[in-house]
C-alpha cells in the first residue's frame, strides 16, 4: 500500500480535458471548455474563456485559470454515469483565515448539494458546496488516477486540519 501511495504521489500530474460547469441563474449549468490538472500541490482549472473573477468584484480582471491549493478542498468525487468530477470544499467557517477561503472568493462558481442526515429522530439535510467538471473521455480516469486523487485528498485534509479551529468536524 505504501508503495502504491508513494507511486501515485510520485506521478507529477494528471491532465483531463472536458468542460467546467457553473450554475445558471435558474436551473442547469453553463459549460466552458477547459482542462483540469491534478498536481501534488493542488488542482488547477484552465478554461478557454476568461471567466474567473473574484465574487462580485466587478472591476477586477477576469482570468482563465483557477488554482485550488492544498487545504482548500476536502474531497474529489468521480461520477461515472454523468461523467463528472466534483471537487468538494470544507465549510469555510471552520477555517482560521476564512476571509481567504475558496468559497468566499468564488462563491458564484459553486453548486449546492443537499445531503440527507439524521440527527436523533429528526431527518434533515446538510448543504455541501462543490465545483463541477465534466470530463470528455471516461478512460482518462483509471484505478491509478483514483489512488492519486485519494492521496491528494489526504494531503489536503492534513492541510485543512492545520488551518481549522475545529478538528473534530473534519475527522
Amino acid at each position: 500500500m505504501l508503495f502504491m501511495v508513494g507511486y501515485a504521489l510520485g506521478q507529477t500530474e494528471i491532465k483531463i480535458k472536458g468542460k467546467f460547469l457553473i450554475p445558471k441563474f435558474f436551473e442547469g449549468a453553463r459549460e466552458y471548455i477547459g482542462v483540469i490538472t491534478f498536481a501534488r500541490n493542488g488542482i488547477e482549472i484552465e478554461c478557454q474563456e476568461k471567466i474567473f473573477q473574484p465574487f462580485n468584484e466587478f472591476d477586477a480582471p477576469k482570468h482563465r485559470k483557477l488554482e485550488i491549493k492544498l487545504g482548500e478542498f476536502n474531497g474529489i468525487e468521480i461520477k461515472g454515469e454523468t461523467k463528472k468530477i466534483i471537487i468538494n470544499i470544507p465549510n469555510w467557517y471552520i477555517l482560521k483565515d476564512r476571509k481567504k477561503s475558496l468559497y468566499l472568493r468564488y462563491r458564484n462558481m459553486f453548486f449546492h448539494f443537499y445531503r440527507p442526515i439524521t440527527v436523533g429522530f429528526d431527518p434533515g439535510y446538510h448543504v455541501d458546496y462543490g465545483l463541477e467538471f465534466m470530463f470528455d473521455n471516461p478512460d482518462d480516469i483509471g484505478v491509478s488516477e483514483k489512488k492519486f486523487f485519494r492521496a491528494l485528498v489526504n494531503r489536503s485534509l492534513k492541510a485543512i486540519k492545520a488551518n481549522s479551529w475545529l478538528h473534530e468536524l473534519i475527522e
Partner: peptide, 9 residues
C-alpha cells in the same frame, strides 16, 4: 450593499 470576495461593497 452587496457581499464581495473582499468584504462588503
Amino acid at each position: 450593499l452587496i457581499p464581495t470576495a473582499g468584504g462588503v461593497k
